[in-house]
């Protein structure tokens, strides 16, 4: 339906030429792909930190009792602030602000500051996901672990978190995909990644097909990511069932 409307629109021939030019596509793809590796790299590095920082924030928020109130409050403040500020602002502020301080021990690379920005933002979101997972584990599980003599942190590590993380894999993947897309924002700092490269190509040829190529690359990476998660979840279910049936 939508396709029919688009294809019959008066501007379609011009759009087709501008966006679906086979020659432009093949000639721009190699360079954009190379630049896209930068996106993948940024994504992998950022994701590693995000998973750790997000978990730390979530665990800090789950500490009980008045003794830990300051830590809890800090964790909450962090999550609120970094979920509130638009990603693009954080990246601008860090990417242009931090190097401008001219402190010799601070890294000057914009990629590094871009990654730091993404980590700060996404850790706030991911910490909420983890927290929902931790809250979804029934308190009787922790009680059972503690009653066996496990310490609070042992119970968290061996009993609560493994169950919590399993439950939040799908929402975590959502955040992964969002992050994968947001790696393009680092282009704003001048780093030549896929989106920036396609802009350069477009500027040189006045043809927009490189944008399409970039979009396809992004989709190409999110689909395997989604299928991988499905596979993980299925494997986990199968493993539990077959172990029961065979044992």
């Amino acid at each position: 339906m939508i396709v029919v409307v688009i294809v019959n629109s008066p501007g379609w021939p011009a759009v087709r030429r501008a966006f679906f030019d086979g020659h432009e596509f093949t000639s721009s793809l190699p360079e954009i792909s190379r630049a896209f590796l930068t996106n993948v790299e940024i994504f992998c590095i950022a994701e590693g930190f995000i998973l750790v920082v997000g978990l730390a924030i979530a665990v800090m928020r789950s500490l009980p009792g008045p003794v830990f109130f300051p830590i809890r409050a800090l964790a909450i403040l962090y999550a609120d602030i970094f979920r509130g500020i638009p990603t693009i602002l954080v990246i601008y502020i860090l990417g242009f602000g931090a190097p401008a301080l001219q402190l010799s021990w601070l890294p000057t690379s914009t990629v590094v500051w871009g990654i730091v920005g993404l980590v700060l933002i996404y850790s706030a979101y991911v910490s909420e996901v983890y927290r929902a997972g931790i809250d979804s584990v029934h308190p009787s599980q922790d009680a059972a672990a503690r009653s066996l003599g496990l310490s609070r942190s042992q119970s968290m590590r061996h009993v609560v978190l493994p169950q919590a993380v399993r439950r939040v894999v799908p929402p975590l993947l959502n955040d992964f995909i969002g992050l994968q897309k947001d790696t393009a924002l680092i282009a704003l700092l001048g780093t030549v990644e896929a989106f920036r490269q396609s802009q350069i190509d477009v500027a040189a040829t006045f043809n927009f097909t490189p944008y399409l190529a970039t979009a396809l690359l992004f989709v190409a990476i999110t689909i395997p990511l989604a299928r991988f998660t499905d596979w993980l979840l299925n494997r986990d279910r199968r493993r539990r069932q077959s172990a029961g049936a065979l044992g």
Partner: peptide, 28 residues
């Protein structure tokens, strides 16, 4: 923790750890 080590408790609702095999539940 050291007190609880000396006292065992079993609950009405079992509260086994669902992500561990029987042996891992017991050896944890």
């Amino acid at each position: 923790d050291s007190v609880r080590r000396r006292i065992g408790i079993v609950f009405q609702s079992f509260n086994l750890f669902p992500h561990m095999t029987v042996l891992r539940n017991v050896t944890l």
